[in-house]
Design a protein around this nucleic acid. Sequence first.
RNA 1: GGGUAGUUAGCUCAGCGGAAGAGUACUCGCUCCACAUGCGAGUGAUCGCAGGUUCAAAUCCUGCACUACCCACCA
Length: 883
Amino acid sequence: MEKTYNFKEIEIKWAEYWINDKTFSAKPDKDKIPFTIIIPPPNITGHLHMGHALDNVLQDIIIRFKKIQGYNTLWLPGTDHGGIATQSVVEKFLKKEGKTRYDLGRKKFLEEIWQWKSLTESAILNQLKKLGCGLDWDRTAFTMDKNRSKAVEKSFVYLFNKGLIYRGKRLINWCARCSTALSDIEVEYDNEKSNLWYVKYSLKNSEEYIVVATTRPETIFGDTGVAVNPNDKRYTKFIGKTIILPLINREIKIVADRTVDKSFGTGAVKITPAHNVIDNDIAKRNQLDIVEIIDIKGTMINVPLEYCGLSVEVARKKIVKELDTMGLLVKTQDHVHSIAKCYRCYTKIEFLMSEQWFLNITKMSKKAIDVVNNNVISFYPESWKKSYILWLKNLKDWCISRQIWWGHRIPIYYCIDKNKNKKNCKPIASLSKPKECSYCKGKNFVRDEDVLDTWFSSALWPISVFNWGQNDNNEDLKYFYPTSVLVTGHDILYLWVARMIQFGLEFMKNIPFANVFIHGIVRDKQGKKMSKSLGNIVDPIMIINQYGADALRFTIAQNAAPGKDIQISNDSFLSARNFVNKIWNASRFVILNSENIGKFDINIKPSELADSWILAELTNTVLKVKTRYESYNIDAAAREIYDFFWTKYCNWYIEFSKIRISSTDLDAKKQVLSILIYILKFILQLISPIMPFISEEIWSILNKNTDDTKIISKSTLFEIKNNNIESINKMKIIQDIIIAIRTLRSEMNISPSVKIEAFFNILRNSKETTVIENENYIKQLAKINTIQFCKNMRKSKDYVTTVIGNFEIFLPLNKSIDIEKEKTKLTKKVALSKKEIEIAILKLNNKNFIKNAKYTEIKKIKINLDEAKLKVKKINEALKFLK
RNA sequence: GGGUAGUUAGCUCAGCGGAAGAGUACUCGCUCCACAUGCGAGUGAUCGCAGGUUCAAAUCCUGCACUACCCACCA
């Protein structure tokens, strides 16, 4: 075995093996319980970032754990066409060549994106392979491939025929850069500094006027009313009166609406129903007209000639200036308010009236709320339940049409037969071009130009990946659906998770997954979200090249507390890298020592305290780790294994084992090695979901002459019954003594490599058989050559002492000590012990404590009190001696 | 405005009713035959603040402060 672990070669070797061997391919098998995860398909916009690494490593950990537990696991890979996101990325590339998508035309542009898709998709899948992801590659899906498209079309037609999908002219969110409508959750809000302009609106045939406060003076042309609160005494007399709108002199009414806030601005609101959601509602309640003045390019329309065609920003400046000149601008005030922006390109959103397709998804909400409320679907952590339910309760209809080219074209056909009675022809939803219009018998149709929101196909993902839409009763769907757990970040809980639940219940009459494991967002060292513009990206592939995939995976696992954001910087991976190295070297120690000593028993026989102790500790660890994995506390599982392996196995047990390994007693040597191997195998199995590469490599070396050469192919029950608690207590005494001697040696600058003698004054009339029987452990780990047990060892200037448990330990000094330093140290120790005594006595004298506290608690305090008293006595003696 | 998390050693985070933990950083000492990507020892925390419940609170409850995120509103 190499002295250092060559992760580069070995990781490539196993990644290829898993793929070629089809280790992770899955078929329905009625004799086995399925465990299914479908990947949250990454957008084909580019490469994977650390957030993807987090999401996928967690899924792989769960899949691998379930696989070695014996489940029939399936982790299904795929990518998402990414609608607007992908289209804008490709448009950006075109822009560099000075072209737009219109220069290419729809067909050519789509060809361009398909080409882009094939490149990025394979890059993404390669990255997943590098991470070690145990995906069933033969099932790789794409949200816009043939089978997935069928699912989309079928579901659309179904929902349309059910009357849940309808077309309507409504106020929608419009991104002028992407030139498409957006759903409400695709809009983000940012606070921005702006102004609040106070404008005089004069009453008709009167000297009186009302002042309105507005952040959007350019929408004056679209005003069709002014609203005041019905209880606002300042304005009650104006309700019902007419106002002459400045600049265009249109007559508009003053109406009363209880939603108007009396305290904001002047308490009078100009109403622009065509470009503001709230205004639109007020207009509906008060039967106000709708006047559209901004078009989809973000320019002014239906306005006086000098404003026509101006952009919103230019028009605003011009209008403010004009109002000022006319003396209608009363005041301009600084004002911070939130601005709606496109979640893909951060362009300001324009609210405007537009004919779009909507899905009445609110009807599906009740069931989606129930399944989560009743824990048919469980959330980890549970706290997200509340947000999820609240969101569904306030859900509005979903605008599903997009005016982009990249996506699923809406399967709606319009009859264009002009000779017949066109007026009665209704749009037809169909899987293919209809043959005949059922209204006019016309035979000519055109398909709707729009595409669907990318999240529509995402919502179908859990069923479309099993080819729902073609054969709804296929074996895969029956066997693998509902899936077991969905692993995702909380940022797409509404955008995606909620909708999959709604669609799953609608189309399958069953939940899409039983559990939702929600992890956090990856952040940088300063806690900021990683983004290209901030330049704080940590590239997972760079980390893999530098430290290895196992190190990356362990770091992720260690930090992945459910629901919590994790901070990662380039040096967060060092500790994990060191851990990989530690596993390698400890294994190397075990393997090298078991070579050339012939065959030995695989059945383990604990023959010493150390053996039963480490087996008891192993039992505890296995139980804990299993529970942690099963409840998605991956971070805790990782820490549990780390601590057991490094501290207990390496630092203690291997050191103890060296006594037998270096002895001439071959049987003893074989016996201890069999335990070392037995435990090492357990550790490898436990850690293999997190660090599959190194564990697979070492496993294959350990098992090279057996049938068990692949850890991932072995199902493991994780059941052991070596829980000798007494051995843990006994070992604690030995360890405490070893630590006490090491500390004393270190404090006294006794050379660590020199073996010395020690005297153990037994302070009580107890037998201390544990210590006497196991003195060789103390000798080995504390570098002692002889231990003399005695009763009346006295202080002398040739020795230093320390008190631990029932012993006062004396170590010979090779030089004189710094008396003052020693005095301060001992005085400090006495003070500490005295305080302990004080607290213990206080507790024991407390009748309520004695009455209520657990027996073990009281016993513990009594023992501590005794030990502290003894310590004080002995240290005081030592102090006296120093004087 | 409503909601959800969080506030523990310089930093990153565990612990969530019975004597403050890990990694990292720092200090000291070690090349002794698995590992210096290491070994041993040590310094370092009134567990955000204020109340309350309890024999006992970092841990449970209430309030407050600050931080982050989500939802709504911002005329």
